[in-house]
């Protein structure tokens, strides 16, 4: 137990928290993407999927029990991910923005010799966080992004998720924001997935190309379908 505490106290330990929670969240993203493909099978299948999530693990788990276990795990992962990122960012900025007595933040713009994705992690993370809040207010609670009367909540155990998705993505601004957020998430994942291997000490010169390819594959598997959902609604492939 003291070992876990020693790890937690170090900067690398907080990076480990970021990597492990990141892996949990990537797992969620893959399942979430897969679930959404059910919209192509029509309202019945998609609405049954929404209802089925509540009875996940039935009959071993009661109604919504396993769903809540997963929600708590996800929330803990999001909190842990953001918390460790914030603590490490503060530590890094203290080290890097050595204003000293000069009041000059940096003398000169530093040259960049590496890729773009790594530099967007913090800004991209904020965009993704704001997106998650909007996403929940939008599809989960139906309080944002809809015209009056468009969103239909649960009606006696029947879910109208299909209606809500189609009507939600019919708003070009909503769809546009989803697509932009997915591009930000794509950059975050491309660097983040590879970084998780590096942080957990599973990387070396021999495997780094493989892990980059895995990162690109995971990003493509999550982002391409996610971008296609709003496009499918707006182009009429998925309709009421």
């Amino acid at each position: 137990m003291t070992g876990v505490l020693t790890l937690y106290r170090s900067s690398i330990g907080k990076k480990v928290i970021m990597a492990v929670t990141g892996v949990v969240l990537v797992g969620f993203l893959i399942v979430h993407m897969y679930g959404n493909t059910k919209m192509f099978y029509g309202p019945q299948v998609f609405n049954d999927y929404a209802a089925g999530l509540r009875d996940l693990g039935h009959p071993i788990f009661g109604h919504e029990h396993l769903l809540w276990v997963m929600r708590v795990l996800l929330l803990a992962s999001v909190v842990g991910h953001i918390w460790s990122a914030t603590v490490l960012t503060m530590q890094s900025q203290k080290s890097a923005y050595a204003r000293g007595v000069t009041k000059v933040k940096r003398y000169e713009k530093k040259q960049r010799r590496t890729g773009y994705a790594a530099y967007t992690m913090r800004f991209g993370g904020v965009v993704i966080f704001l997106f998650i809040i909007f996403h929940l207010l939008n599809f989960t609670f139906g309080v944002a992004g809809y015209s009056a009367g468009e969103y239909i909540g649960e009606q006696g155990g029947v879910y109208n998720a299909y209606n809500n998705v189609v009507r939600g993505f019919s708003h070009p601004l909503v769809s546009g924001f989803y697509i932009l957020a997915m591009l930000a998430l794509g950059l975050h994942l491309f660097h983040g997935v590879w970084s998780a291997f590096q942080t957990l000490g599973l990387n070396n010169e021999k495997y780094t190309g493989t892990w980059r390819a895995v990162a690109m594959l995971v990003t493509a598997i999550i982002i391409l379908p996610n971008i296609f959902f709003p496009i499918a609604v707006m182009s009429g492939i998925v309709h009421l």
Binding site: L7, I12, G13, F197, Q198, G201, N203, E205, T208
Partner: peptide, 16 residues
């Protein structure tokens, strides 16, 4: 950058 991955591995192992 391998040396950083190696350090992470050593540190995680040592902590645990």
């Amino acid at each position: 950058l391998d040396v950083i991955a190696r350090m992470n591995r050593d540190l995680i192992g040592a902590s645990l």
